[in-house]
Nucleic acid binder design. Structure first.
Lengths: 150, 150
DNA sequence: ATTAAATAATTAGAACATCTAATTATTAGA
DNA sequence: TCTAATAATTAGATGTTCTAATTATTTAAT
């Protein structure tokens, strides 16, 4: 029984980047899809939140608006996202995922989830449940507050 | 009870980047230390493995040798790491953490772990134990195989 | 109603991350 | 010894992310 907070934190700090790296490599390895993690996340968010403003995407991702603006630029350049005028407020932007963007998002989600599922398949049912529960708790702890009421 | 492998994988895919982003922001926010996550990881690895070769660092981090070479360049430029000749094999490089590097590594570890500990402090003991156990399992699943016998 | 303040987004400039391909040394093996 | 393999770097590209400054638009206050 660890229970030592600092110790738990250090382990988390060691393991999270390792998993992240695995996800990153997996995502970029599919030549045909080739989304970076931020691109993937932005696409997924806008897909779930049709017509998001740049600021909403930035807040979700924990990025500054300029960073987000560039990120979106890249996605638009590849035809995966579209930037339109907001009808009520001309300062604002309405972001949407294009058909092609959705196709790639889905393929990428599917592919990466399969990869992770494969990794997890070696874990017995009990421990998988432990992981599920931990992920749930961690989500509550780390997810931007405004996204938890869903 | 979720138990659905694919579903677990998708949740992991959602949550890991969120935690990662929190860690990244936290690390870069300490102006005086200001390590990026890859810099931090490289420093931590070389500190634990005095005299590592470039290739070992690359393998640990899941990066290509060129990427690692540049990463190390940056650390050396900041005086946090040193690159020396390997006595037996002149192709190889012996990496070590400098005194200043160690100072910054420790401060950064301490600061980031405190930040995470603070986040986790709101979680009750039972759930903390669940998280610990999950982290342990995930480490076994994702850590590079060669690093598990320790 | 006009001006000042606040908000939304972008541009500019910088440092870093990361890849593939090609190159340079050095060592090991046929 | 000449060729293979190994270790590392350089080159060139694209993407990430920051701060600071700028542009446009809307809201609020006189």
């Amino acid at each position: 029984m660890t229970v030592d907070l600092e110790e738990s934190a250090r382990k988390l700090l060691e393991v999270v980047p390792i998993i992240m790296q695995a996800i990153r490599s997996e995502m970029r390895s599919r030549r045909s899809l080739d989304l970076t993690v931020p691109q993937f996340r932005a696409l997924a968010f806008v897909n779930r939140n049709e017509g998001s403003s740049l600021w909403e995407v930035a807040r979700h991702m924990g990025l500054t608006p300029p960073s987000t603006s560039r990120l979106v630029d890249g996605l638009i350049a590849r035809g995966l996202m579209a930037r339109n005028d907001h009808p009520a407020d001309r300062r604002r932007v309405r972001l949407t995922v294009t058909g092609q963007g959705l196709t790639i998002l889905e393929a990428s989600t599917e592919g990466t989830a399969s990869y992770l599922a494969d990794k997890l398949s070696g874990v017995d049912a009990d421990n998988r449940e432990v992981i599920d529960k931990a992920v749930e708790t961690l989500r509550a702890v780390f997810a931007p507050a405004h996204e938890l009421e869903r």
